[in-house]
Design a protein around this nucleic acid. Sequence first.
DNA 1: ATCAGTGCAAATGCTTTGCATCGGT
DNA 2: ACCGATGCAAAGCATTTGCACTGAT
Lengths: 137, 137
Amino acid sequence: MSIEEIKNKISEGGLKFTHQRMVIYKAIEDAENHPTAEKVYEHIKDSNPSISLGTVYKTLDTFVNHGIIQKFVDNKGVMRFDSILDTHSHLYCKKTNEIKDYRNEELEALLKGFFEKNEIQGFEVDEVSIVIRGQHK
Amino acid sequence: MSIEEIKNKISEGGLKFTHQRMVIYKAIEDAENHPTAEKVYEHIKDSNPSISLGTVYKTLDTFVNHGIIQKFVDNKGVMRFDSILDTHSHLYCKKTNEIKDYRNEELEALLKGFFEKNEIQGFEVDEVSIVIRGQHK
DNA sequence: ATCAGTGCAAATGCTTTGCATCGGT
DNA sequence: ACCGATGCAAAGCATTTGCACTGAT
């Protein structure tokens, strides 16, 4: 995503465009494996030593609340951030603790079909996601 | 589950059978919505004021390591405990933060079939679980 | 009697909060 | 200039750890 596009994305909804937000957004977008707040901080602090960890947390939170990024919890209870907004599944590696995307249209269609046919009584389904645990070969 | 059965379950694998372990196991089994360590402690402390929160944490951890119970992380990053060991999905309620079981054989068969047919390259799948987010009607 | 289990308090790790200062609009 | 964004440090919460004491075998 270009700098202009990121700027527009941040500005939508009345957020101020700042250097910190630019850098933090790029860090999430560049990371291939959904980073923690700490990882984002590690990644940016060498070239931007003045950005504080607190700002990273606040900024990530702001982005999530404005629908700019998503967050979820890993199996250790730590928050992970993701610039991809549409539905996809995650592969959790027991060895390395990495979390990678898994996209499969057939699987998504299968699940969508199932929950359209089978209502859960007394419960309104918003989203369904899959957690695949295992390890890299 | 009877007291004798719980006693056997705990004794298997060389664990000592203690009053604390009995009480903590029963608290998990009785709870309909996967409790946190804190909730287990809340539930037992009136009738067992001498059991400390630290012991609840250690005991739950021991149970998990011996395959007596399971644990998972909720969407706030807090550990939840579950006396049911076989595969099942969870319903997360956005309103109440409750987590309920959802069991559906067709869904489990569907997923099992999918992952038997579709290998994920470079990744060995151990278990697949579904997270259903929504709210009670 | 032995050694695992327990209680308590201190420590840890991740995240949030308060508040004074800074900077984008 | 205004008001939101930032930096820093302190506080908060869930969980873990260390260690002396207790109790099941």
